[in-house]
Design a protein around this nucleic acid. Structure first.
Lengths: 333, 333
DNA sequence: CAAATCTGCAAAAACCTTTTTGCATTTCTC
DNA sequence: GAGAAATGCAAAAAGGTTTTTGCAGATTTG
């Protein structure tokens, strides 16, 4: 298939058709300078008639702003990136900014390649997103000629980052469980080398005090199953609630409880984390879980970027954004 | 934080530092024209020294090719888009092409907005991705000044589309089940208004003939559970295998079988569809499932786009790409 | 009514790169 | 050693837009 590539219309076409000069046509379209009302209307009408659309390349060349930004992600799966992307887009599309998405696949060489390409394209800024908040970027980013913002990843000192408030998320879940009368709550979560896991565990410990018990492992269903088996096979008091570090873990936990012939939430209440809809909503019972509001994280990062590209100053630091508790049926109440 | 925005280096800077004219500098860097070896080396060295990087905007303005493409998606969740995006990127990044990702959220107004922006940015082409192959795009795309390619969506006549070969995927699963000695296979799948569901069902029917039974419903775990309950609560022969239209359905089916105290794969073998890793691998037992090779779909779409932007001709039509069977333990064997 | 102000438009410069053309030198050929 | 060819570089044009400057003619002011 060979598409008909009719040459795109330029300002010159508009000017010629309207019988005015380039500058007048430009002024008319942008409502700048001094243009007679009648003239302006003629130009506007002709512009829409022939489908004129200003060439963003030429514009960017002149203004030294491309009205584009780059987003570098190492997420191959998309579960974190796309919601954030939606937030970024949402905050920027109305300001005429488009987003280059670059998947690095955790390959430093590829990341470097993408970065070079973005800079060559004169992006106005770069947003780095990670799959965990304590991941060092695969590429050197200091001394760039454009502002950098981190989303779902903590940048180095003197940079700006937006991350979910893990402590807040953990408190939401744990306090919800306690408000429902549960007192023997254990916490099954992911690997200890995840900063997010440690922060959530600390928040949980602060609330539950001496009664607290944290089990670090993996972000998998299997680990949730295994940990639950271990917990319920030993002697002594049995927990009446489990706060899980992810919805996948929660799912494994519920599976194990079913095999142990314990009811959820009757015998044990379960709280998840992530609000990964496909899991959370389809688990039986549907999970009560913590939503990290990734879209909002993206939106805030986009807004910060917008301010920076305008030359406004923003205080560096890590901004922690509140989470939201999604009520399912796994905690009862 | 106010970043230090040291002005980006231009070719003029290089030329001045090297003591040559703009044209010579350009020729030296691009290995065009006639340039003395010594001069060229000097220019090259200075260019790397001061970190010169040609301005893609200026380049694009001149060459009338921006070396960018736009990707329009209505997938909010990201499960389909990001793998395809990775494939698209992979086939294009080495040719110096970057990708604008635009999430339309199924909102025609937003889609139109993104489309306008892409055209203004002089993209060399547009890739449309859908969440199902029979989805009409939210925006008018005929008569565009740039080539359009569809990925995981069938475009109208005279366009180019790449989709997974649903019939092939279904055959892979069903024939695998049969090769393991299963003969009473039922098919539980999603809504009948999905073309993909109908194609897979037809392929399944062709193999199983009179013994075939298709249950259309929803792409959910719940539906899988419910359909399984219905099938096994009636009188007559019980199936020894279930071919599921999605991994989520498969999961619901397995759940139901467990409640019926039937073993998987001992009593009933289960095949899924999608190879949605988080589900497929973490189900107990891990699913044998069909992978649609989304990355390859994206890669092929990218390659087609590349050819089109070079002015090569490509025959229109729907290209169906083979699927791959991923062996888990849910079918035994 | 002369001077000052305002109005409407055009010309030209600028953004940064690539490519074509042109002009001196130098090197080769007979 | 004279004409032809090759070499090395610079100047200029082009791509599409925005913005500054300039210049007439119309209108207002004292």
């Amino acid at each position: 298939m060979k598409p008909i590539l009719h040459r795109r219309r330029t300002l010159r076409d508009v000017a010629k058709a309207a019988g005015v000069s380039l500058s007048t046509a430009s002024n008319a379209l942008n409502a700048t300078g001094r243009v007679n009302r009648q003239t302006r209307e003629t130009v506007l009408q002709i512009a829409t008639e022939i489908g004129f659309m200003p060439n963003a390349l030429a514009r960017g060349l002149l203004s030294r702003r491309s009205f584009t930004i780059g987003m570098l992600t190492n997420d191959t799966y998309g579960r974190l990136t796309l919601p954030m992307m939606a937030g970024v887009s949402e905050s920027l599309v109305d300001h005429g900014i488009s987003v280059f998405l670059c998947a690095t696949n955790n390959d430093p060489r590829r990341a470097q390649l993408h970065l070079q390409a973005l800079l060559a394209r004169q992006v106005d800024g770069i947003i780095i997103t990670g799959t965990r908040r304590d991941l060092t970027p695969a590429v050197e980013l200091s001394g760039l000629p454009v502002p950098v913002v981190y989303a779902f990843a903590e940048g180095p000192a003197q940079t700006i980052s937006f991350v979910p408030d893990d402590a807040h998320g953990a408190r939401l879940a744990v306090e919800h469980l306690r408000s429902l009368g549960r007192s023997r709550i254990v916490h099954i979560t992911g690997p200890m080398d995840y900063l997010a896991a440690r922060i959530r565990a600390a928040a949980y410990r602060q609330i539950c005090g001496d009664a607290s018990e944290v089990r670090y492992g993996a972000w998998t269903e299997e680990w949730g199953y295994e940990a639950t088996q271990a917990i319920f096979s030993r002697a002594g008091d049995r927990p009446d609630a489990i706060f899980c570090g992810s919805d996948e873990i929660a799912r494994g936990v519920i599976d194990a409880l079913r095999d142990l012939e314990l009811s959820v939430p009757g015998d044990v209440a379960i709280a998840g984390y992530d609000n990964w809809e496909v899991i959370a909503r389809q688990t039986r019972p549907p999970l009560t879980t913590v939503d990290m509001e990734l879209k909002e994280v993206g939106r805030r990062a986009g807004l910060a970027m917008l301010a920076l590209t305008r030359g406004e100053e923003i205080a560096p630091g890590v901004v922690e954004l509140p989470c939201r508790l999604v009520i399912g049926r796994s905690c009862g109440g």
